[in-house]
Design a protein around this nucleic acid. Structure first.
Lengths: 116, 116
DNA sequence: CAGTATCCCCGCCGATACTG
DNA sequence: CAGTATCGGCGGGGATACTG
């Protein structure tokens, strides 16, 4: 990556690399769901919010390509579970979660944010 | 899992709250740039990569609306700097950065990622 | 230098219908 | 249940030209 400044924070932008994975619209939520253990398609869908089947399928596939999760057909059912690499995202997600929580507390829940 | 409340779905989730701010295409990179101290428009633009003026202006504005950064006109020049709240994102970004770095090392830099 | 104003494209994503 | 196929919009973001 050539667009790096020789900063203390920056080396060779691993930031965007991580964000490629968890920065998408649903990815972090899906991973969060799977941090609780293996889940089935419908469970993920229910836990993550109003996501269309198509999009969820899509997300699941890219996350698999990234080796974040595995898809296994166990007997009758399909199941998704985090790989070791996916598990390693736990502290990252936790940090994001913490910041959001502290933020919520200091700003109030109803103080609405500008849209994106 | 206890680090998530039972009803954290979509919008209410602290996770997506944080990602609303740093999950965008350029936001994290902009914040990273400002972690090194106040910067001018052109400096941010140079440091962040191939971003159009329009988009940068836009991003800067929403980040300001989120109270992540301040815009000050000091004499001749316009300058952007992180607010205290923006500064508080440092550990978060650092965590993201660390993960990406470890990832890079274990996968190799040239091992290309699937597109998004 | 630090933007603003337009135009326009493309890809994300939901809705809907269908399949094994 | 766990998807696939297809259509369609709407919005993010680049390119370009212009301004104080």
């Amino acid at each position: 990556m050539h667009w790096m400044s020789p900063d203390l924070v920056a080396g060779a932008c691993p930031l965007s690399r991580t964000l490629d994975i968890i920065g998408g619209k649903w990815n972090a939520m899906i991973i969060r769901e799977l941090l609780g253990g293996p889940r089935r398609f419908s469970q993920i869908r229910a836990g993550v919010g109003p996501i269309s089947a198509k999009t969820l399928t899509e997300r699941l596939r890219t996350l698999r390509d990234y080796d974040i999760l595995d898809r296994t057909t166990a007997g009758e059912h399909v199941s998704y579970a985090l790989t070791r690499r996916g598990q390693s995202l736990r502290p990252v997600l936790l940090e994001l979660w913490r910041w959001g929580l502290a933020d919520q507390e200091s700003w109030g829940e109803d103080a609405d944010q500008p849209g994106r």
